[in-house]
């Protein structure tokens, strides 16, 4: 079963050396590389991919690419801890309090305001909510903080969800289609966020149909379809 899978190739796309000596904000412990070997994951009875091996080094941004159904989200869910693989190992992954998970759904209840949603999220994660307002401000949705999420536009909701990344500092980011529904200014913003995160020594695994800007430091692509 497992030995007939498609081997996925990862290719180095770009290496940016000038950020290598930046300040590392995250403790050394959390910064062990994530190494995946011979991974196979199924959804239901369908094996989505198998025999997948790759490594993510600290400070890297891994862009997971592939056509629809190639298993981008499935891979991200497995790395993030939402899904259990049927074969293979994931070593050196982050603990529960070292990772940010941002699914393609924004985890915002439509009947609550952004502030209520995020405060709940902070309490859920045992984190203080003092950074919430600056984070919302930075993502340009501070003005909407007391409107019900159901009345926000898709892009605004996406921005609110992304503000979690700034409200609580965590070294590992797993972002599923963060650019979906985001306007040009938002794309710029997310690029800045990712660059700053990588600059601080943080790691991000991002799925996206769109290309990520080449200006990002240490951006690497992982193509899921052979």
């Amino acid at each position: 079963m497992a030995n007939e899978g498609r081997y996925c190739k990862s290719q180095e796309r770009r290496r940016v050396p000038h950020r290598l000596h930046c300040a590392r904000n995250f403790p050394a412990l959390a910064m062990s590389p994530l190494s995946v070997s011979d991974l196979a994951v199924s959804r239901g009875d369908r094996t989505v991919f198998s025999g997948l091996s790759f490594r993510v080094e600290p400070g890297e941004i891994l862009h997971v690419q592939g056509r629809n159904g190639a298993g981008k989200t499935t891979l991200l869910e497995t790395l993030g801890g939402l899904r259990v693989q049927i074969a293979g190992t994931i070593a050196g992954g982050p603990g529960a309090s070292e990772r940010h998970w941002l699914g393609h759904r924004s985890a915002l209840n439509a009947a609550l305001t952004p502030l209520e949603n995020l405060r709940f999220w902070c309490a859920l994660n045992g984190a203080g909510d003092s950074e919430l307002l600056p984070a919302l401000d930075q993502l340009g949705v501070k003005a909407q903080r007391n409107r019900l999420c159901g009345t926000l536009s898709t892009g605004q909701r996406r921005r609110v969800a992304l503000s979690r990344l700034l409200a609580v500092k965590r070294p590992w980011w797993f972002l599923d289609e963060p650019l979906a529904g985001i306007d040009a200014a938002g794309l710029q913003l997310i690029t800045q966020l990712l660059a700053a995160h990588a600059g601080e020594g943080g790691t991000a695994v991002v799925t996206s149909h769109q290309a990520l800007p080449d200006s990002l430091p240490r951006l690497r692509a992982l193509a899921l379809d052979a």
């Binding site: 007939e4 959804r43 009875d45 369908r46 989505v48 629809n68 159904g69 190639a70 298993g71 981008k72 989200t73 499935t74």
Partner: peptide, 18 residues
């Protein structure tokens, strides 16, 4: 090897969205 690959694709469920 060809046979296994085609067999899987033919008999497996159609690939849906992820």
């Amino acid at each position: 090897s060809m046979q296994s690959r085609q067999g899987r694709q033919r008999h497996g469920e159609p690939r849906g969205a992820d």
